Amino acid sequence: MRLRNIPRAESVLKACREVMKEPALYRGCWDKVFGNENPVFIEIGMGKGQFLLTMAEQNPDVNFIGIERYSSVLLRAVEKYMERETQAPANIRFICMDAADIADVFAKGEVSGIYLNFSDPWPKARHARRRLTSKEYLSRYDKILACDGVVEFKTDNRGLFEFSLEEIRESDVWEIKERTFDLHGDEAMNRGNVMTEYEEKFSAAGNPICKLRAVRKA
């Protein structure tokens, strides 16, 4: 899908101090960026930012970093953040980058958890390695997650979800801790669930939401 260029995006992102302009400079020292040693959770493909902003507001003792590849998309999240003015949570940062480079930005064990919400399904088989739950990306996550780190994935795309389950099952490193094909109908897994904009839209249309949690094998 071709994204519409928004001329003001670059200037707005540049002006926002919470947008990290050269994120690789902070590899291994994100605790200094936040000024504390609280756990760091990242969302890859944060879209308009509703999920991460809500998580940051509800969990002040956790640091959150939203990663988005396109400036025109990240702009929406940053503007939503800036609208909060004095009420904006201090425990959030933003990065505009390709997630394939996350090992250049985070050191081994520096990240406690990764959220993947309604990621691009890349439906063509030849693009499978670009899916954020492919074995290629699972290998990247292994390089930055803490020993007890977790990967959480939500989607309404049944095919992508089944692909993700299989990639994890075939992994020597990862295992599925929890999974459901109907998140909102699963009382245990839905407890405390924070919805994204897409999740609200898809669930309102009657689409079941799939979710999994993956951890390292013991």
Rank of each mutant, 00 (worst) to 15 (best):
V33Y: 12
L52W: 01
D31L: 12
E85V: 09
C16F: 03
Y26N: 14
M55C: 14
M55T: 07
V33N: 07
K48G: 03
I44A: 11
W30V: 11
E83I: 01
M82G: 01
I65P: 04
V62A: 02
G45Q: 04
A15R: 08
C16P: 08
G47V: 14
V33T: 10
R17D: 15
V40I: 11
I44T: 09
P7E: 12
M20H: 05
N38W: 11
R17L: 13
I6R: 09
E68Q: 04
T54Q: 15
W30G: 13
L75S: 14
N63H: 03
N59Y: 15
E85G: 03
I67F: 00
Q58N: 14
F34C: 13
S72D: 13
R84M: 14
T54N: 10
E57I: 08
G45L: 06
M20I: 15
L53Y: 02
V12K: 04
L52M: 08
I65A: 03
R17C: 12
W30F: 03
W30L: 12
V73T: 08
R27D: 02
R69I: 15
R84N: 01
E83Q: 14
V73H: 06
E37Q: 05
P23G: 00
E18S: 12
E18L: 08
Y70Q: 12
K80T: 06
R8W: 09
Y70C: 02
P39R: 08
L74T: 05
R17H: 14
S72K: 04
K80W: 01
A77R: 01
E85D: 07
I67N: 00
R69G: 15
E68F: 05
V19K: 03
I67V: 07
V62K: 01
N59L: 10
R84K: 14
P7Y: 05
E37M: 02
A15Y: 04
N36F: 04
E18Y: 08
F41G: 00
L75T: 05
E10H: 14
E10S: 15
E37T: 05
N38R: 09
Y81I: 08
L52S: 10
E43R: 03
P39D: 13
G49V: 02
E83N: 12
G28S: 11
E85A: 09
M55A: 13
A56Q: 05
A9W: 11
D31E: 12
E83W: 02
F51W: 09
E85K: 14
V19E: 01
P39W: 06
D61E: 03
R69F: 15
M46G: 04
E10K: 15
E22S: 06
G49H: 07
F34T: 07
M82F: 00
P23I: 00
Q50S: 15
E57D: 13
G45T: 05
D31V: 07
R17T: 15
E43P: 00
R8E: 14
P39L: 13
